[in-house]
Computed example of a mutant assay.
Amino acid sequence: MTSTSRRGHDRTEAIMRTMLELGRETGYARLSIEAVARRAGVGKHTVYRRWTSKGALLLDSLLSLHRHDLDYPDTGDVRADLRAQIHRVADLMTAPPFGPLFRALVAEAQHDPDVATALHAQFTRPQEERTVARLNTARDRGELSPDFDLDLAMAILSGPLYFRFLITREPLTHEYVDQVLDALFAGMGPR
């Protein structure tokens, strides 16, 4: 990496780190690109050159924190692997700064089509693909019914979790995750 590209990378990291710090301190609604730029020690044009909006910057900042935490283990036991991965996600989503800022990002996506598209492309779709791929591997091994619709399994699995996290705001606990998995596997097991 050249010194210019290293400096650009360091500046990008500083901006994203500052976004998360300020987001945690002030909340997303009161956050501005100008405040992020000021605290990060860059001009606002430097920020806007990399991100088109506050929502786009927040998405990249959140994903930079935990991109690798979203990968599935493969121990040969699909139920245990799903449980371990979804427990990690539940822990992530209930802890600051990720949880509150992720809620704000989802809200922003309702009003900003570019943020909605980026959220789907960079977070939702890759997570769906990882889950379906893990389920497909399990189905190929005979751990799941060969005729179970894996896209439907993904919807059944994620729907209750997002509903609880975003709508009812009830705690997203390991016990709740286990209840959802138990319900899902009651219909997915080999016949």
Rank of each mutant, 00 (worst) to 15 (best):
V177S: 04
R39D: 05
V106A: 14
L63D: 11
E143M: 14
G187Y: 12
Q127M: 14
D147I: 15
L172S: 01
D60C: 11
L135G: 00
T52K: 15
F148I: 14
A107T: 15
M154F: 10
I15S: 04
H68Q: 10
L184C: 02
Q122D: 11
L92E: 07
E129H: 10
R164K: 12
G187N: 04
Q110H: 14
G187I: 05
D60R: 07
R130L: 14
A104K: 08
G76F: 04
L57Q: 09
A155E: 13
L184E: 02
G23A: 02
M19G: 11
L70R: 12
Q179A: 12
R139T: 03
V47P: 04
Q110E: 15
I33V: 14
L65A: 14
F98P: 08
A138V: 14
D151I: 05
P97Q: 12
A118T: 08
Q127S: 12
L62Q: 04
L57F: 07
L58Q: 01
R67G: 09
A121E: 15
P113W: 03
E13M: 10
F165M: 05
V47Y: 03
P100D: 07
R11W: 09
G142K: 06
Y176H: 13
D149Y: 09
Y28P: 05
L58A: 11
G159D: 00
R141A: 15
V36W: 00
A153V: 07
D112C: 11
A35E: 11
I33M: 03
